[in-house]
Amino acid sequence: MSNTPRYQSLNGSISTQKGAVLIVVLLFLVLIILVGVIAVKQSTTDLRLATSDQINTLLLQSADNANQNIEQGVNGSSDADVYTDMLSRTGPFGHFILDTNSTEHEYVFCFRPRGRFFDINKTTINTKDGNILGNDIGYCNPSTAADYISDRNASMTQVNISLTAPSANNEVFSSYTVGQDSSEISSQAFMFDINSTAILPAYSGKADAAKDCFKKTSRVGTVEDDEDAIGGCMIEEGVPSTVLYEMANVENLSMRKNCVDFGKGAGVVCTLPTS
């Protein structure tokens, strides 16, 4: 009889130890699961950051590529076709230079570097009232393969050009070329706002979101709500985008000369043009 409690006590100790081991194992399993979840979340976060960085780099390159081509077109040979198109009355710069009624206009075209990056027949001119002069084929369209930067159909860039608004901080006579007759158009310098908007349509939530946003103005100072401008609309619709702004000075440099001791005997180095 005296041995029975001893066996019972031994059996109870073994059961208690088995239960403790089970609890410890469960705790280790929970810890392992938590570590795994944290690792997966961290990997997902790193992947998103890497993807975001790649997207931003691609968008910046797309927008900057448009600005570089425009600069090369204007600063290049005056005999080139693209120079003639851009400085003609229906071109993005000539329209403002040669048309005195174009002050409040906005010139729009889709950047297509796979061919001739600027097609004068595929442009749109917006007025300050929101009307369109001509047609609306200057806007980029995500459903049009030719509007993409490359055959991969990944990114596209739309260029909006307008005259820089007058400012009291501008230097006096800064709008004229030194040494030329102020009454001539060729002697005037024009400041332009160039906004190049690059997007990735494939990452947008709606198929037509980017198309509708491209039809909005790039002149942020003329709208009350950010969503009424291209950049703000893209953000509101969840379209990955970058708007690269550049201020460009366009003036006639072919006759610009620096005169030393002008009009003083033999020290005359150059003379002002007669016309």
Rank of each mutant, 00 (worst) to 15 (best):
N3G: 08
T4E: 00
L10H: 03
G12N: 15
G12V: 15
S13Y: 08
S15Y: 13
Q17S: 09
G19R: 02
A20D: 11
L22R: 01
L27H: 11
F28H: 03
L29P: 05
L34Y: 06
V37H: 13
I38R: 15
V40S: 15
S43E: 15
T45F: 07
D46R: 11
L47H: 07
R48D: 15
L49P: 06
D53N: 14
I55S: 03
I55Y: 01
N56G: 03
N56I: 01
T57L: 10
L58R: 05
L58N: 13
L58A: 05
L59W: 07
N69D: 08
E71Y: 13
Q72S: 13
Q72P: 07
V74A: 01
S78F: 05
D79R: 06
D79S: 09
D79T: 11
D79W: 08
A80W: 06
R89S: 13
G94E: 05
H95W: 00
I97E: 05
L98H: 07
S102A: 10
S102I: 01
S102Y: 07
T103L: 11
T103A: 14
H105Q: 00
E106M: 10
Y107R: 09
Y107P: 03
F109H: 02
C110I: 01
R112N: 01
R112S: 01
G115A: 01
G115W: 00
R116Y: 09
T123Q: 04
N126A: 08
N131G: 07
I132T: 11
L133N: 09
G134I: 09
N135F: 13
N141P: 02
N141F: 10
P142E: 03
T144L: 11
A145M: 02
I149G: 09
S150M: 01
N153F: 03
A154K: 06
S155H: 00
T157V: 05
N160L: 11
I161E: 01
S162F: 03
T164D: 12
A165C: 03
S167K: 08
V172N: 10
G179Q: 06
Q180Y: 08
S182K: 10
I185D: 15
S186H: 10
S187K: 04
S187M: 04
A189I: 08
M191I: 10
M191K: 15
F192L: 03
I194V: 06
A198L: 00
A198N: 00
A202E: 07
S204L: 10
D208Q: 02
D208C: 03
D208S: 00
A209Q: 00
K211P: 00
C213D: 04
C213Y: 00
K215H: 03
S218W: 12
R219M: 06
G221K: 05
D225V: 12
E227D: 08
D228H: 09
M234L: 04
M234S: 09
E236N: 15
P240A: 11
T242H: 05
V243N: 12
L244C: 15
Y245V: 12
E246A: 15
M247G: 09
V250L: 02
E251W: 15
E251C: 12
M255E: 14
R256T: 14
R256G: 06
C259L: 15
V260I: 15
F262I: 10
G263K: 00
G263I: 02
K264S: 09
G265K: 00
A266I: 08
V268K: 11
V268Q: 14
V269A: 12
